[in-house]
Design a protein around this nucleic acid. Structure first.
Lengths: 145, 145
DNA sequence: ATCTTTGTAACAGCAAACATTACAATCATG
DNA sequence: CATGATTGTAATGTTTGCTGTTACAAAGAT
């Protein structure tokens, strides 16, 4: 099971907005053609990013912009914005383990701490990377010979 | 998108095998009743664990056993055993980004390193926990007053 | 031989992701 | 202020992977 492509699409979109904002209007159509998906998919993701205070989207006139300093947007922010699963739920548990079995009745007590630490490790790493970092990579790679 | 319950079920199963191996035969039926799923689900997971050299399963006579020292089985071993996605693919990418867009054509060059580091952080944490560690937690919790 | 249990195929149901069409609401601007 | 461009969102469809279930041959113990 993989983390949905919404996350990588969202990051792709943010990079595009920053890269092209001086030269063109970054409409959902334009962004969609860079990612190569339906514009509605982009609009839905932009809505999620907007709710999280990451972008501003203009109706009518069109186009999206970052709502904050790129150095102030982490990959974790983007991840939690577009990933529907609630906070702290990377691992899926089977429902209704047998309450009469000492293991079944305690499986959460036994595992939750360890699993949380695994998720924390991943999230800490995500928090350590900002859109500014990614933009630096992007500029370097795009302008390479 | 969550990591499938196969992972937590697999760990649950391993704990059960270790906990009950002295007192009973740990058949797929027995394990299924602790987890509260269909026995076939357990058998499928046991097969995946067997292919990874983590358990031994006896046909006919029945029952599963660990194939190695619990201290030598990490949560990462279990995770890669039951998670169908190939190595290094925690994040799902959209296919066919626009090759004519400097961002679209370079999106993997731009992101792969960062994403790999995130996945590595998660896997390192998983590797640091063994079934022996989990068994210690389990024994302490189960025998608590 | 018989009984138990595993290994596996076959199929069904469901949920989430992803795609697409359509259209009202919104905004800039001529 | 009418028009053209664009967003916001609902409705609908397709696909994919997970999970559940039935069924039964293969394997092993007694």
């Amino acid at each position: 099971m993989q983390i949905s492509s919404r996350f990588t699409i969202a990051v792709h979109v943010l990079i595009c907005i920053e890269t092209f904002k001086k030269d063109m209007k970054t409409t959902s159509d334009f962004l969609a053609s860079s990612v190569n998906v339906n514009p509605v998919v982009i609009r839905r993701i932009l809505q999620q990013l907007k709710k999280a205070g990451i972008v501003e989207v203009k109706r009518g006139s069109g186009g999206a912009d970052l709502a904050r300093d790129p150095a102030d947007i982490t990959l974790l922010d983007v991840y939690t914005a577009v990933e529907s699963v609630e906070e702290g739920r990377l691992f899926h548990f089977h429902e209704n383990p047998n309450p009469q079995c000492p293991v079944g009745s305690n499986i959460h007590n036994i595992l939750d701490d360890r699993l949380k630490r695994i998720q924390d490790a991943m999230e800490d790493q995500m928090r350590s990377v900002t859109i500014r970092d990614v933009m630096e990579d992007a500029c370097r790679i795009i302008s390479a010979p």
